[in-house]
Design a protein around this nucleic acid. Structure first.
Length: 271
DNA sequence: AATCGCGCCTGACGGC
DNA sequence: TGCCGTCAGGCGCGAT
């Protein structure tokens, strides 16, 4: 499941192949993603040169002279740069055929992803407008977490996964960051001290940066089959390790469900 | 305003 | 071998 580090890795992988290239046409084989792919997608983008590939949270923005493509990989989406004559798999829903004979191909078996187009500022798009700060930016720090969480009774894990608070922290990295910060996932967000908010913000940045590094070193050039997502080569301390010993203290890792999502923690290290 | 739970969708996996 | 139930999860949205 692509989280922020995987999306950032994808951005870095595809950007060199796209920037300065004209999109000859868009081929939409299946419009039924999270939201319908616009019927006039091809008409909107055909002939336009990609100016920039940006990321905002887990959204990828392909900036064109007129408008922007907004892509989201959902749960199972992946992007590759391939020769445009390679026949599509049944889950290869959208192609962006480039002028150089290559093609940006979106595969998404579960179709939770999205391909949208806007002629306006994509950051003002309904889906992006209300997003919180980037977790790796200076704006996101212990003070930010502390101030925003005062009075909130919501479990801290759900709090840091709320994209209106801060973007890009998915389930895996939320679990891992809380372990590193020594905070119990169910603790009320508003009852975490300033010091521990600081620890948490540092842990979040640490986990995300490590995952981006891992993604970058996982030999992904995006010109062939997808490489592994970052977390495959990352040491996971708690995620998916229920019953196994904590790597710090040996206590069995516990599992619970929080907001319909799998949650893992060490009952000895996290309070 | 804050919080909670739903539903979209398919592949993997376990049990029989 | 095959069938079936269960789980996984990003995230917007509607309900409370």
């Amino acid at each position: 499941m692509p989280e922020l580090p995987e999306v950032e890795t994808a951005r870095r992988g595809i950007a060199p192949h796209l920037v300065g290239q004209a999109i000859k046409r868009a081929i939409v084989r299946n419009r039924h993603l999270r939201w319908p792919v616009p019927r006039d997608l091809d008409a909107q983008i055909a002939g336009q040169v990609v100016r920039q590939v940006e990321r905002r949270g887990k959204y990828l923005l392909l900036r064109l002279p007129v408008g922007s493509l907004i892509l989201h990989l959902g749960m199972s989406g992946s992007l590759r740069i391939i020769d445009s004559d390679i026949p599509p798999d049944k889950h290869d829903h959208v192609d962006f055929v480039l002028a150089n004979g290559r093609c940006l191909r979106l595969r998404d078996p579960r179709r939770f992803g999205a391909v949208l187009f806007t002629r306006r500022d994509p950051l003002q798009h309904k889906l992006l407008r209300q997003l919180g700060p980037e977790p790796l930016s200076d704006e996101f720090d212990g003070d930010f977490l502390y101030v925003k969480s005062r009075g909130r009774k919501i479990a801290v894990k759900l709090f840091i996964m709320d994209s209106k608070m801060v973007v890009g922290i998915g389930n895996i990295y939320a679990n891992e960051a809380l372990f590193l910060a020594g905070i119990h996932p169910k603790r009320a967000a508003g009852r975490i001290s300033r010091e521990r908010c600081q620890r948490l913000s540092v842990a979040i940045k640490q986990v995300l940066r490590a995952a981006i590094r891992a993604g970058g070193t996982t030999l992904r050039d995006f010109t062939a089959e997808d490489g592994q997502p970052g977390y495959f080569s990352l040491k996971l301390n708690v995620y998916g390790r229920a019953g196994e010993p904590c790597l710090v203290c040996g206590t069995p890792i516990r599992h619970l469900t929080l907001g319909q999502r799998s949650t893992y923690y060490c009952p000895h290290c996290q309070h």
